[in-house]
Design a binder for these strands. Sequence first.
DNA 1: GAAGCTTTTGCATGCGTATGCAACAGCAAA
DNA 2: TTTGCTGTTGCATACGCATGCAAAAGCTTC
Lengths: 354, 354
Amino acid sequence: MSRKKAGRRAPTESDVAKVAGVSQSAVSRAFTPGASIAEDTRKKILKAAQSLSYQPNLMARSMATGRSNIIALAISSLENPFYAQVVKELSEQLRETGRHILLFTTSPDGTADPELERVLSYQVDALILTATTASLELTLQCQKAGVPIVQINRESNLSGISTVRGENQRAAEQIADFFVAAGHTRFAFVGGSESSNISQIRQQAYIGRLKSAGFEHVAVAYGNYTFEGAAAATRILLEKPDRADAIFCASDYMAFAALDVVKREFGLSVPEDIAIVGVDDVPEAGHAAYDLTTYSQPAAALAREAIKIIDSQMASPGRRAQRREVRGQLILRGSTRLPPQGVLTIEGKKIWQS
Amino acid sequence: MSRKKAGRRAPTESDVAKVAGVSQSAVSRAFTPGASIAEDTRKKILKAAQSLSYQPNLMARSMATGRSNIIALAISSLENPFYAQVVKELSEQLRETGRHILLFTTSPDGTADPELERVLSYQVDALILTATTASLELTLQCQKAGVPIVQINRESNLSGISTVRGENQRAAEQIADFFVAAGHTRFAFVGGSESSNISQIRQQAYIGRLKSAGFEHVAVAYGNYTFEGAAAATRILLEKPDRADAIFCASDYMAFAALDVVKREFGLSVPEDIAIVGVDDVPEAGHAAYDLTTYSQPAAALAREAIKIIDSQMASPGRRAQRREVRGQLILRGSTRLPPQGVLTIEGKKIWQS
DNA sequence: GAAGCTTTTGCATGCGTATGCAACAGCAAA
DNA sequence: TTTGCTGTTGCATACGCATGCAAAAGCTTC
């Protein structure tokens, strides 16, 4: 009655203290790295803790310290293998420092997600947004509470939000150059969404570079970063007169959809009739079924930089938002034909440099 | 100095109480559904809370109530799109009741994961294991603490662990029947790992059914639920004399690897030379690149049942572990040839029933 | 052995919320 | 007006841990 019936409540520091014959504070110190406690006492306490199979209550700890060791991660498109990879990397890398991820799946337009606004209730140490954008209100709340925000693969014009991204500009330019070098003449672009600035940057750089090379017209359609959306976008592009012979898709996942449509619905052969390039270099891009040429965007490095930013922001809260870029390269596979020049083979991989 | 410098600390119930001119308890009650409080007072308090943009501190709440509204989710293979889907479904369905996921990525053999043992430190309300098995120690700890454990897609002989799974037995039998009906004569199986009992159940049912049909020999290899592992397993199978003309893979993800190897490395055509069937029906299975026949295992339903179990276990802690099965069906696509009988078309999908 | 110093320990309190209990207000019935 | 009841409110305390402060213990040096 007085205690919960099923399984007496979890042991606390006081319980351990009683067994070890010390005070509760001593137990606390035994579990606090760097605290002032004699080695003998600590051992005695750890033994007692062991015998009770004591586990510190992190909720209580976080209430006392103001730190939870929990990082909120908002993500919109887990079905995209690239982001699944990012989540995995973040989870594993954070675990190395004893932190864990509280997961929020949002709509792609996270701006409108009311649930996310409640993130701060969990006293998270930081907020990582991948493939989502923070609303203004959330940003302000986080800033007031001193919770750093890092966006992966989304830019934001809100000050105070840090950003980690791949080489969007360079990727797009390299791909444009590559298409031109391979002799293509009719170009298309499958973008994410018109509101994704990352997609816009890629689009502008791609179109700009093609223009410099003398190609004025680039067909554009948006796939909204979904498979079905990209398939539809590809259909639109392919039905246009003067059909493209080279498509740049703003993500591998969308490029897979494009390949599906190109091959099955339009009966075109790749890369003879049309070349397709993506961005990300997800594992599937290397599988025989897709064999996709793509500009890589290493998930592990993105995760690492994001965590670095969080750590530095937490160390010196005043610091202003940071922007970091992770390098990639154009990896050549079967979805494109090779240009006569610029192809390098490094560690078994073909890459291209203009 | 007395307060943290960057952004004064988050407002608390006491702050709200001061503004609203009531006691802290009143504020607490205003945010507790069903608590005894006058409607007028509540409105006044909510207004005050709004003006301070007050957010309840869930850590403090969980310390006081013993409930955190956090569900721990351990997952080993996020790169498998099926599990990515499961995670997404769980996250979205849990959100509907205000709960969130604390993510743990583990090695496939979670039994040996020491980090997971610390799950209980977070005072989670329940633990969901997908594609992982709980260690004995962890199980006991959870039972003692009254934290329900649900395994998705792994069986466990430990009592006290609930299980949600697809129709493993029936799936395997249907696939065996289907292969036979389609006129295949040389069979193979690509299993997960020898230690995964789900994979074993499928294997036994498959082999048993084929034996009943008069086929004694079934070639078996294990892909360990990884892409590379399944590719290697397929190579082994295909190099054997009297090469199989029908392969059943214990997951779509492994079937994709098998398709890659079959087509690219061995130059076989599917389904003329060899048929391949998977389990899960991930979205990719429907994509043109794979076009895989597969026995479906609906992620949304798995998630729903898992949550139901958690809820019922939390409602009546004494209750013993539950086992639930989610129905699926054999969905026919281009990786198999059609048998003369048993093919139904439902809502544009071809399915098969013996 | 005393003085001075460092290390170790316990006490007391705070973190933000929930809740049992008693006090109180409001209202209806007598 | 008094009594009894229901519905609201505040007080006090508990939840489990961390930490400033003072007391205690240990050690060094003369």
